[in-house]
Design a protein around this nucleic acid. Structure first.
Length: 467
RNA sequence: GGCGACGUGGCCAAGUGGAUAAGGCAUGGGUCUGCAAAACCCUGAACAUCGGUUCAAAUCCGAUCGUCGCCUCCA
């Protein structure tokens, strides 16, 4: 079995073959750090986290880079508004973002390059492009000659002459062609800048990704990822620059996630319909967001809503239910039951892999996980012992781990120090139940429920967990 | 105007030529329980519309309607 993935470049699913056997070089476009990150950014980071985890599960060594664009017009503008140093502003948001990713259980990238740390490489690349006649300096700026790149438009399926140039953005008529884009921007007074052969300035947006890729990975990478809003112009321009510079194919597979929507529109800072990652995490668990994404297909838009997250939390509860221990008095389940458990384990593992191999079909894979949940719970109800449930529960943990789910309780206010006291209350309540003091027993249950502590009574006694 | 993705039960969603059309959430009935909760069992309900190709279409082709993204900074 092989992994297939949808390649934006060819608009079809292709079998994954890598430059070096068993190694994947993957680059994902990270954020421009001029503000707090929102859950749309989180979706993209999460999608590629799951892809990365799955590739590792399938035996690949994954080298992953995610960049920070830490110098650009918006950072400069915002720093001016706040009257702070633009580098410090960017640094602060980078730290915030790394914290966000950690909170979301997103594995750190192997490399986190930044535009400002690649200036030398960027300048060398621009010089190379000028030498080849593919770029030209203009009053301290440098532009890329789009029409000189032979297959410009191949990623986004665009024909240069069909595009409405200057409709929304005023055309700059100094440029040879309105579609030419900036590789280097001359600095205005007081702006952050670096010395270059064309005077003081800073890199254009697209070149940093090409330079960082070249620096870290060389001419070619296996997978280049990002949101589908980056296909044009950003990724198109990256291809043009990189392939013009090296003469080699840039990325073998282009993978793009769909947009997270809120109130019928793409979540975006400029539209203003955003929920920051911090805000989200004060109200909901990281797992619930991950579940929401996993239960959809990464290439399609996902509608964010409170209802969707609540439904996700319930789905997670159900996944967690499979991990509950065997009954204390369990005497062991019949051969038929354990055989069914073994069959389902095999079925779930193979269906999980088949689904994920097919362009990371996480929703399909999740479906087969729920079938295992049902069989595990049935076995437990039928008296299966801890031993008999053990390997199936291990499989659950293994596969949900590939998804990056923690399956930890969602309660935000859970506290380790309270646990002995809760245990005490629960055992006192047991005494009351023995004495058939239902009123008081029920009151304790209700009051604890209000504190997000859920009591469950079984034949063997009561257990509790955080809501 | 150009390019692209998509439309499956009440909601989310898998499935891309032949299946009983997964799964989750919600709903209804039952088992269990002091009552709950949890779990288990049973249950109803879906392929946007219209044509076409085919022995056979949710799946392929065309048209129509609708939704979203990109063509401007964007994950």
């Amino acid at each position: 079995m092989a992994i297939s993935l949808y390649n934006t470049l060819t608009r079809k699913k292709e079998i994954l073959t890598t430059i070096e056997p068993n190694k994947v070089r993957m680059y994902v476009c990270g954020p421009t750090v001029y503000n707090k990150a929102h859950i749309g950014h989180a979706m993209s980071a999460l999608v590629f986290d799951v892809i990365r985890r799955y590739l590792e599960f399938r035996g690949y060594e994954v080298q992953m880079a995610m960049n920070f664009t830490d110098v650009d017009d918006k950072i400069i503008k915002r720093a001016e508004e706040l009257n702070v140093d633009p580098f410090e502003l960017a640094e602060g948001y980078i730290e915030d973002y790394k914290k966000n990713l950690e909170d979301l259980n997103i594995l750190p990238a192997t490399y986190n390059p930044r535009a400002t740390q690649e200036i030398d490489q960027i300048i060398r690349m621009i010089e190379g492009l000028i030498e080849k006649g593919l770029a030209y300096p203009l009053e301290g700026d440098v532009y890329f000659r789009v029409r000189m790149a032979p297959d410009y438009g191949k990623l986004s399926g665009r024909n240069l002459d069909d595009m409405r140039v200057g409709v929304r953005k005023e055309a700059d008529d100094r440029k040879e062609d309105p579609l030419d884009f900036a590789l280097w921007k001359a600095a205005k007074e007081g702006e952050p800048s670096w010395e270059s052969p064309w005077g003081k300035g800073r890199p254009g947006w697209h070149i940093e990704c090409s330079a960082m890729n070249f620096h870290i990975f060389g001419d070619s990478i296996d997978i280049h990822g990002g949101g589908n809003d980056l296909i044009f112009p950003h990724h198109e321009n990256e291809i043009a620059q990189s392939e013009s510079f090296t003469g080699k194919p840039f990325a073998r597979y282009w993978v793009h996630n769909g947009m997270l929507q809120l109130r019928g529109e793409k979540m975006s800072k400029s539209i203003g319909n955003i929920i920051s990652i911090d805000e989200f995490l004060t109200l909901h668990s990281a797992d619930s967001f991950r579940y929401l994404i996993l239960n959809s297909s990464y290439r399609n838009p996902i509608i964010f809503s409170t209802e969707a997250i609540e439904s996700a939390e319930k789905g997670l509860d159900r996944l967690r239910s499979a991990l509950k221990p065997a009954a204390v008095s369990a005497t062991g389940a019949s051969v038929q039951i354990t055989a069914a458990l073994n069959d389902q384990m095999e079925k779930t593992e193979s269906e999980f892999i088949a689904a994920m191999d097919d362009d990371f079909n996480s929703a399909g894979a999740l479906g087969t996980l729920f079938e295992l949940v049902r069989v595990i719970n049935f076995a437990r109800d039928s008296g299966a012992s801890a031993d008999q449930l053990g390997s199936a529960q291990m499989l659950m943990k293994k596969l949900t781990g590939v998804f990056g789910l923690t399956l930890e309780s969602a309660a935000a206010n859970k506290s380790d120090t309270a646990e002995p006291f809760i245990d005490l209350l629960v055992s006192l309540r047991q005494e009351m139940r023995k004495q058939k003091n239902w009123a008081l027993a029920d009151q304790i249950r209700d009051d604890l429920a209000a504190l997000k502590v859920v009591i469950e009574d079984t034949r063997e006694g009561s257990s509790w967990h955080w809501a």
